[in-house]
Amino acid sequence: MRWLDLIHRWTGGVIGLVLAIMGLTGAILVHKESWIALPHAGDARIGDPAAVGAATEKLMTANPGAQGIVYAGDRFGLDQLRLPKGAGAYADQAGNIVTRWSSQWERPELWIFDLHHHLFSGDVGETIIGVAGLAAILFVVTGTVLWWRTRRTFKFRPWPKRLSRPAIVMQHRDLGIVMAPLLLLSAVTGTMMVFRPFANLVLIPFGSGEALAAAMAPPRVKSGLLSATPDWRGMISVAHRRFPDAQIRILSLPRKPGDAILIRMKRSGEWLPNGRSTLWFDAADGHVLAATDALAMPQVAQVFNGAYPLHAAKVGGLAYRLLLTVCGLALAMLGSLTVWTFWFRRPRRKPMTHHAAARSG
């Protein structure tokens, strides 16, 4: 067991701070919709296609450089307008701007999200987080094995009895085993979203990686150039007729010539908060080029689409959000105290006695 203990301690000492950041920011983001204190943030979602179309037309006409809109949901009553270079705005569901920002640093929910998902480092940070997720899975497995030897001394301790290394180690061991199922769920679902090969491995019981890749791949469509006056009302009306039980979630404009206008919708049977039912419209005249029904995807894709809602507590209501909050705070404590004890409270080696030195010589 000594080698297992060494792996557990050294990996925790190196990667523990990243996991602490993930836990704390995750616990904050779970309740994001509740603490964004802006006018109309608590408004009920308006689902009428005509009203959504009118607000979209108003926002896009007044902001010609916009890249898209994330629409109000059931827990957050504002539309988010996406603008270039990290700028954006929140608007009420009638299309009236409530607040603007020129960079993500002006909105805490945006930079906390970036920290949680990318460590402020883009793709490199996302890879580091994926590695940390794999390490977290290793911690849960090895920690459970190591705990089994001392299971008779188990005592639930939300906080160490004192800030000595032995007390922290005991609390770490026993709190870790209590939180192990939630920690494992959070680590597995988070890592699935970063590393597709890992997701393919987890999803083997539900289908092949090839089937997942095929289901998630966008269709090959060719669009005309973006019209100066797109028919936003018409496209939104068509989208709602195609999926009458769905709510519109995201509108994305073409990023380069030949790309289509994209509308993502969430059907009533989907867990994913922004849905995966998607329509692609010709940017020149607004006719439908392709459509994907998330509920018609193969089982492996539907299970994969459930990873994010489970990871971010977008299902299960307040009770599940509170559970993941506790999980995130526990991870923050476990990670930070692990780093502290490993680097600053390591046991001192006892000086060798005269007889021990003689024997070693």
Results as ranks from 00 to 15, higher is better:
Arg359Leu: 12
Gly68Phe: 07
Pro219Asn: 11
Arg75Cys: 00
Ala91Thr: 04
Val326Trp: 12
Ala51Cys: 00
Arg173Phe: 03
Met193Pro: 03
Glu33Tyr: 06
Lys32Glu: 15
Ala296Arg: 12
Gly224Val: 07
Pro197Cys: 06
Glu106Gly: 14
Ile36Thr: 13
Gly68Asp: 10
Leu253Met: 15
Thr191Phe: 10
Arg359Pro: 00
Ala211Leu: 08
Ile128Ser: 01
Gly88Gln: 08
Thr338Met: 07
Gly224His: 06
Val303Ser: 03
Thr150Ser: 13
Leu310His: 07
Met1Phe: 12
Val30Ile: 14
Ala199His: 08
Gly73Cys: 00
Gly317Lys: 03
Pro39Ser: 09
Gly306Ala: 15
Trp148Glu: 08
Gln93Arg: 04
Ile112Asn: 05
Leu322Phe: 11
Ala356Lys: 13
Val98Glu: 13
Met235Val: 07
Gly133Ile: 08
Pro351Glu: 06
Pro158Val: 02
Thr229Asp: 14
Met265Glu: 13
Ser336Pro: 01
Val18Met: 08
Arg100Gly: 05
Gly12Cys: 03
Arg220Ala: 15
Val169Ser: 13
Ala27Met: 04
Arg233Pro: 11
Phe156Pro: 00
Asp285Trp: 06
Gly125Gln: 09
Pro351Ala: 14
Pro108Thr: 11
Ala72Lys: 06
Gly26Ala: 01
Pro64Gln: 15
Met179Val: 04
Arg346Tyr: 13
Gly13Phe: 07
Thr61Ile: 05
Ser34Val: 10
Gln171Gly: 10
Leu81Pro: 05
Arg2Tyr: 08
Ile15Cys: 10
Asp74Ile: 06
Ser103Glu: 14
Met179Thr: 05
Thr325Arg: 02
Ala246Met: 05
Arg264Lys: 12
Leu322Gln: 10
Trp101Lys: 01
Gly133Val: 07
Glu106Cys: 05
Ser227Trp: 05
Ser268Gly: 06
Gly143Cys: 04
Ile177Thr: 11
Leu110Glu: 10
Ser208Val: 03
Val288Arg: 01
Gly88Cys: 09
Met352Leu: 15
Arg242Glu: 13
Gln80Pro: 00
Ser164Val: 06
Thr25Leu: 07
Arg107Met: 15
Met235Ile: 10
Ala358Tyr: 10
Leu262Trp: 09
Asp282Lys: 03
Leu225Trp: 02
Leu289Ala: 01
Ser121Tyr: 09
Ile263Ser: 05
Ile250His: 11
Ala217Tyr: 01
Ala135Lys: 03
Gln93Thr: 04
Leu4Val: 14
Leu331Ala: 15
Asp259Val: 05
Asp92Asn: 15
Phe281Trp: 11
Arg149Asn: 12
Val70Pro: 00
Ile128Asn: 02
Leu59Gly: 03
His40Phe: 13
Pro257Ser: 12
Val288Phe: 04
Gly16Ala: 02
Ser164Arg: 11
Met179Lys: 00
Gln67Phe: 00
Ala312Ser: 15
Ala41Arg: 08
Ala167Gln: 10
Val52Phe: 02
Leu226Trp: 12
Pro39Met: 08
Ala217His: 08
His354Ala: 15
Glu210His: 09
Arg149Val: 10
Pro257Asp: 12
Leu226Val: 08
Ala319Pro: 00
Gly16Leu: 01
Met193Cys: 04
Asp293Trp: 01
Val326Pro: 00
Thr341Arg: 01
Phe195Gln: 02
Leu115Gly: 07
Val145Ser: 08
Ala284His: 13
Leu81Arg: 01
Val18Gly: 02
His172Leu: 08
Gly275Ile: 07
Gly306Gln: 06
Ala260Glu: 10
Ala319Phe: 13
